[in-house]
Simulated scan of single mutants.
Amino acid sequence: MPHISDAPENSDKIVHLLVYSIFTGLWFCYFYALKQKKDNFSTSLIKSCSLAFVYGIVVEILQESLTTSRSGDFKDLIANSVGIFVGILFIFLAKTQFRRLKSKF
């Protein structure tokens, strides 16, 4: 894709970081507020982070093994992991709001 070559090198890593922080937050919301009343904060956080991390690994493996136009990249996994960490930070910053939200369900 010629228009992508105009982008700065490794700029896609920022996209990975943002997407995985949002992805982690959305899964956390699902597990903590909507999925099960018994899931506590820590359990929901572990589930959401694990799911995001495993999903990232699976996507990179599938890109490498099943496609010819895409390739798996270890740097993408690092960016995904940093994104998950950023998601965790935001979740902890909003911990009070999440608990308030859960009490309404």
Rank of each mutant, 00 (worst) to 15 (best):
M1H: 10
P2L: 14
P2K: 13
S5I: 04
S5P: 01
D6T: 07
D6G: 09
A7Q: 13
A7S: 10
P8T: 07
P8D: 06
E9W: 08
S11C: 14
S11Y: 15
S11V: 15
D12I: 11
K13F: 03
K13W: 03
V15D: 05
V15S: 13
H16G: 05
L17K: 11
L17S: 14
V19Q: 12
V19W: 14
Y20Q: 13
Y20S: 13
S21E: 13
S21L: 13
F23Q: 06
W27Y: 06
F28W: 02
A33I: 10
A33D: 09
L34R: 03
L34N: 07
K35Q: 11
K35C: 12
K37Q: 15
K38P: 00
K38R: 12
K38L: 11
D39F: 14
N40T: 09
T43N: 15
S44Y: 04
L45Q: 05
K47C: 01
S48D: 06
S48E: 07
L51I: 05
A52G: 06
A52I: 10
V54I: 14
Y55V: 08
Y55E: 05
V58D: 11
I61G: 03
L62S: 09
L66C: 10
L66T: 14
T67F: 09
G72E: 01
D73K: 03
D73Y: 01
F74A: 12
K75C: 05
D76P: 13
D76Y: 02
D76N: 08
L77D: 12
L77P: 12
I78K: 07
A79I: 14
N80R: 01
S81C: 11
S81T: 15
V82T: 07
I84W: 03
I84R: 00
I84L: 09
F85W: 00
V86C: 14
F90L: 10
I91W: 01
I91P: 04
F92M: 11
F92R: 01
L93T: 06
L93W: 08
A94E: 11
A94C: 10
A94G: 06
A94H: 05
Q97I: 00
F98K: 04
R100P: 03
L101A: 06
K104P: 02
